[in-house]
Design a protein around this nucleic acid. Structure first.
Lengths: 148, 148
DNA sequence: ATTGACATTAACGTTAACGTTAATCTATAA
DNA sequence: TTATAGATTAACGTTAACGTTAATGTCAAT
């Protein structure tokens, strides 16, 4: 069990962000101490780490993540309650299917972008080569310290 | 040569966005007609498409993209002007190297996320199977139309 | 010469995702 | 018990990336 300050260190999220995520319903309200302080479980910290990663790395908005979370909870809370209709489950499957394809698409685009970057690097290296012989004077000038 | 309305259709960006990108220096100001209307070249449209893609798909901020663009222009405007020092070129190479690694990192994270999604889909499908036999009544109820 | 369909700039408005500050409460160590 | 170091809520502030509106200009066709 962790207090909010521990969780900031474990997730990289700020206190404000943690409270905000709770406020908008992205995460479920955690337990409280006698003195009304939030205590997060290991589970909740794990979930928060995933949320943070999906936001930073995958560039998902909190709205998009909310959809995933509620969807995840729907699946988790099933079993006993059996509160899901066939129609709902089919919708869930479709949504997941689409998201998986979107990720594949993004990955392809990323690879393309990487190729672009590599090309730019080649260009830069080519200039580097040309400058190495031709520009020794410049290289020398670069090494001078000028104190303003 | 295209007018701004054409470019919106070709890039998916709005007119406001195009003017905004110009305003903040993300793209170079295009030519104008006699009547002061912007005219974009094929080249500029291509660049804008890449910008739009990098933003949407890779989730780059306009600030980050500005760095790339100025960097790209530095490399492009080289050749004759030779205005780059060895130190600058080395910096460029390092920056590109880092960005390439960052993309690799993101791709790995995306694959992991995809795996998560697949697991969720499996869970959903499992429920689907169980419900198919058990929940015919529910399936039937789902198909009823209730007009409020 | 006027209409309509395009364009322009300038400026205020909006939304998301927090940051920051203020006022207050609580637990514990001295 | 008083101080210190944590927590809390409430509310206003901020930044990015545009949206929206208003006032105006231009050109081609009627």
């Amino acid at each position: 069990m962790y207090l909010i300050d521990d969780v900031t260190k474990m997730t990289g999220l700020t206190k404000r962000a943690l409270r905000y995520y709770e406020e908008i319903g992205l995460i479920l309200p955690p337990q409280r101490t006698k003195g009304n302080a939030r205590i997060y479980s290991e589970e909740e910290v794990k979930e928060l780490r995933k949320v943070a990663e999906a936001k930073e790395v995958l560039g998902f908005s909190l709205q998009e993540l909310q959809q995933f979370m509620s969807l995840k909870r729907m699946i988790e809370e099933r079993s006993e309650r059996q509160g899901l209709s066939v129609k709902e489950i089919t919708q869930i499957e479709d949504l997941l299917e689409n998201q998986i394809k979107m990720i594949d698409f993004k990955v392809v685009k990323m690879q393309a972008f990487k190729t672009e970057l590599k090309k730019m690097r080649e260009s830069a290296m080519a200039i580097h080569e040309k400058t190495k012989t031709k520009g020794e004077m410049k290289e020398w000038k670069d090494s001078i310290q000028i104190t303003d």
